[in-house]
Design a protein around this nucleic acid. Structure first.
Length: 410
DNA sequence: TCTGGGGTCCTAGGACCC
DNA sequence: TCTGGGGTCCTAGGACCC
């Protein structure tokens, strides 16, 4: 196939950078965003905000993002806040403000779309962009074979900064896999352009876990097998990888290590599931803490129902997720006979799921999930949202389509 | 001093049907 | 009477990602 130009754009330390826009006085300091109950800055007598430092934090919670100053001390996202406090006690801790981050997310994506509209959403702070057909993308000059694509990338970065005041890093290559790796090679505010010819020198020396899709488990297993870098993975026999990792994943590992990836940039996809979950401030017991647990459970179901209704989806399977105090996770789910977004139906079904799980051990987390989603208009017209009809009834209902309402319609 | 909240995809076994 | 596959749906768990 003709060479594609796929960009991966990643906002630099996104949440923390948004907070720096709000509190410019924190620029240059270690700043950590995270902790569900981290303290909002309180206004001091002189009108300036008083920030709480990481050292004074106690309780559950993880680092969501850290500025590069805090990262230089070893703090990284996903780390427990107590551990982060030991590494960077002087860092400022701010609570996450997702409404604000979503606002900036929309701003930067709209800015990119003005230059290049073929965008794949990869969450709040990153996107893929297909630049293959962008005007001038294939232009070359005597001293720069990437002159055209480089100019487009610089234009995108400038537009993002103009729209948000935030920096980003871009990786551009013939596919998503290589671009994702490339965008991290020159952070922050970086731009890396590479082709297949650069794989041996730029990609192969990197640790295998830098490949998107090789996580903690797979990288440990690879290390046990004597493979640390992407190059060593590329040198491994494909059949041997299949024997070690299964046909699907093994074959993919081999392809990935050679930088091969034909996935298209997908500009739209329907959600598969919607969920709500919460970690308690202290572990709860199904019997001893029945009242508070029940209230939280109902609230989660109501929030989930509201999410479904706001987004315009109906769900056919309802599930619960439990995390016990030893971090073991179990899930239970039930498939309904008809789709619903009704809070009571969700609560009742989730309650039946809960009964299928072991409830002796203390719980750390409780979640409710809606799956098998569809839009109301994709359903037979005679099976209205939340109608309590069985599958068999649904099959018979079309006989009444277009006829007068029956009592079962009400 | 442990480990948030929101997702996707894959695997695998059993039920059920043809 | 026994032996068989293939396809789809449901359920549970797990790896991985942002």
């Amino acid at each position: 196939m003709p060479c594609r130009w796929i960009a991966h754009l990643d906002m630099d330390a996104f949440y923390a950078s948004v907070e720096l826009l709000r509190y410019p006085v924190l620029r240059g300091r270690g700043v950590v965003v995270g902790g569900r109950r981290a303290q909002q800055p309180v206004l001091q007598a002189d009108g300036s905000p008083g920030f709480s430092e990481l050292r004074s934090y106690a309780g559950r919670g993880v680092v969501t993002t850290a500025t590069y100053e805090a990262r230089s001390l070893g703090v990284h996202s996903g780390m427990g806040l107590m551990k982060a406090a030991a590494l960077a006690p002087d860092a400022v801790l701010l609570p996450a403000d997702f409404d604000e981050y979503r606002k900036y997310s929309r701003l930067f994506k709209a800015a990119v779309a003005e230059v290049a509209p073929l965008i794949e959403d990869r969450g709040i702070d990153e996107i893929y962009i297909d630049l293959t057909e962008a005007p001038g993308a294939q232009d070359v000059t005597d001293d720069d074979p990437y002159a055209g694509i480089r100019a487009i990338a610089e234009r995108i970065k400038a537009r993002v900064y103009l729209a948000t005041g935030l920096g980003c890093s871009m990786g551009i290559s013939p596919n998503k896999l290589l671009s994702k790796i490339s965008s991290e090679l020159d952070k922050p505010n970086g731009l890396t352009i590479l082709t297949h010819a650069d794989i041996p020198s730029l990609i192969w020396p990197l640790p295998a876990k830098r490949v998107n899709g090789i996580g903690p488990k797979a990288s440990v297993k690879l290390e046990v097998l004597g493979i640390r870098t992407i190059g060593e993975l590329a040198a491994a026999d494909a059949q041997w990888l299949v024997e070690q990792f299964g046909s699907n994943y093994g074959a993919w590992l081999h392809q990935a290590a050679h930088g091969r990836d034909e996935r298209p940039v997908v500009t739209f996809s329907e959600p598969k599931s919607i969920s709500r979950e919460t970690t308690f401030e202290r572990d709860l017991h199904a019997r001893e803490d029945r009242a508070v647990l029940g209230a939280i459970f109902t609230l989660l179901c109501e929030q989930l129902a509201a999410d479904l209704q706001r987004k315009g989806y109906l769900a056919k399977t309802i599930g619960v997720k439990l995390r016990y105090d030893d971090f073991r996770i179990v899930t239970r789910e039930l498939t309904l006979e008809s789709h619903t977004s009704d809070a009571h139906t969700i609560r009742r079904t989730a309650g039946r799921c809960l009964k299928k799980a072991m409830l002796e051990q203390r719980l750390r987390l409780l979640g409710v999930r809606a799956g098998s989603l569809c839009k109301p208009d994709a359903l037979p017209a005679s099976a209205p949202a939340g109608a309590n009809v069985t599958g068999r009834d649904q099959l018979q209902l079309p006989m009444f389509e277009g006829s007068t309402r029956t009592t079962s319609d009400v």
